[in-house]
Amino acid sequence: METIQTEQQIQSFLKDRICELLERPGLSEELTIDTQLSEVGMDSVMLVNLMVHIEQHYQIFYEDDELLAENFATIQIITDKIQEKLGLGD
């Protein structure tokens, strides 16, 4: 990565991808970092699409035991995991 990704940049990236996957651009305004993604219509196929976007964009890789719905429940949880993988965690 050429630039260090801030938490906000990651969250913004995730929000954009989620709205694209759901084909609901208007969702961006109501989607918060704590919104349960299953409640806005993200199904397992969309979640896997999101994982792949994340892996390609951040050049990280999810191990098998990380492929759990709970690790992709909200933007905040996904962001924390990305930061951890990028070595940017607390």
Binding site: L47, V48, V52, D64, D65, L67, L68
Partner: peptide, 10 residues
């Protein structure tokens, strides 16, 4: 098995 489900989509 849940992870398997995601792997299958991958």
């Amino acid at each position: 098995w849940n992870a398997f489900g995601y792997l299958a989509i991958r």
